[in-house]
Design a protein around this nucleic acid. Sequence first.
DNA 1: CGAGCCTTTGAGTTTCCTCAACCTGAGTGG
DNA 2: CCACTCAGGTTGAGGAAACTCAAAGGCTCG
Lengths: 244, 244
Amino acid sequence: MQTSNATIPITDRAPKCSTCSIGQLCLPVGMSAQDVEKMDALVQDRVRVRKGDTLFRLGDPLVALYAIRFGTLKTHVTMEDGRSQVTGFYLPGEVVGFDGLQQMKHTSDATALEDTEVCVVRYDEMQRISASLPSLQHQFMRLMSKEITQDQVMLITLGSMRAEERLAGFLVNLSERLAARGYSPSEFVLRMSREEIGSYLGLKLETVSRLFSRFAEAGLIQVRQRHVKLIDMAGIRQVFGRGC
Amino acid sequence: MQTSNATIPITDRAPKCSTCSIGQLCLPVGMSAQDVEKMDALVQDRVRVRKGDTLFRLGDPLVALYAIRFGTLKTHVTMEDGRSQVTGFYLPGEVVGFDGLQQMKHTSDATALEDTEVCVVRYDEMQRISASLPSLQHQFMRLMSKEITQDQVMLITLGSMRAEERLAGFLVNLSERLAARGYSPSEFVLRMSREEIGSYLGLKLETVSRLFSRFAEAGLIQVRQRHVKLIDMAGIRQVFGRGC
DNA sequence: CGAGCCTTTGAGTTTCCTCAACCTGAGTGG
DNA sequence: CCACTCAGGTTGAGGAAACTCAAAGGCTCG
């Protein structure tokens, strides 16, 4: 599995927010149909990223934000001593890259967990268009705010919760996000390894594996490798809820 | 010490970004003098918050963001079971409230750690003015991006670092932020308790206290209560650097 | 100058980590 | 087509880091 920055531009047909099937989960959320049409000018390109490849890397100049059309990404940072931490998982309709706007440089790596396609939202275009489209400006603020809120939930998760609470929270969160995208909330395939889950949750992969086994033993879930079935959603929420 | 939402509006003289002494640490960072003058219309009010009082609380409707003129704030969230976590400390020139933009409701409490004064930046005004002032729009994006980056640094801190690395990182970060504000980078008074530091770093107050003692024993710092003197900055960075 | 909060320090415990061995399943080449 | 390989996953035993509980000392503020 290579880790090169091998992205493949897609040019066959112009992507349009106004006709995109996941529009209502993505940038256009809550915008009027009129306004969404104006956005079509914003997204000129799409890019495909193969499993294991990176969409961008820490330090790359930021020229665009990326909205996921299909696939899954993780963002992660590697420290000098080699320790690495996953800072986020991103599903279709979610937008990646907001962290780099301050320095106009990306502050993490973004790697595809499966073959993934993203819409390229050029930042300069976005600024230009949103000057005459206040709802777009507000929209970006909202998305960034959502990212901040999400990060702060993770801060509480990592700072105050015990291992089993963290994993339960992870499953609940993933379930809800998948459900919002029309997938089953109770049965899904994890796109990330135990190690990546552990990294995201501040745990070691063995701990994650043990917890999956313990949850299964308690009748909360069924697991076989990366295939997960949530059996007792209320029970899972309760484990999570003990700490939230 | 009360925890009521007792804010005191200040109306004696209109605040102006263009003449504010901390302007270059605050919203106007990097903006032209011309643009900053346009911002004066943005900040109509200031509010004073007394030590222990809250500027806003979780669930309050968000009508404005707040730039700190002087003082220190913490943002924090309390869970149902009573566990509480500090999600951030904010110094003069820093802007609080970005987390609430998605729902237009604050998602945490903001409490003053000492008597504090903030400039009120109404969100509707900000949107109106930034339509004709692109640099302001960009500025808000940058600030939000900074918040995201900062949160992600904390994610790595909480997820991957050991207790001593976390505390060393906290001291380095605080030192740098104080230095940027013209205070001594090596000698300062902590505005927050051991418990608040611990909560922020995902540690218990006893652990924080023990680490301070251990750092002092190792000749890295001097501590007496909340008065801290950083003796061996390189050494502190090294402790931090082992994990970053 | 007294009350209450914050801080320090100690002793024992818990949680999660480390190290290690083994298992499973998918892909590969003989 | 089957044995092999290898990455990813599971499970166990032992240990380290941080937590809990507890007691005592020090500041600050009224």
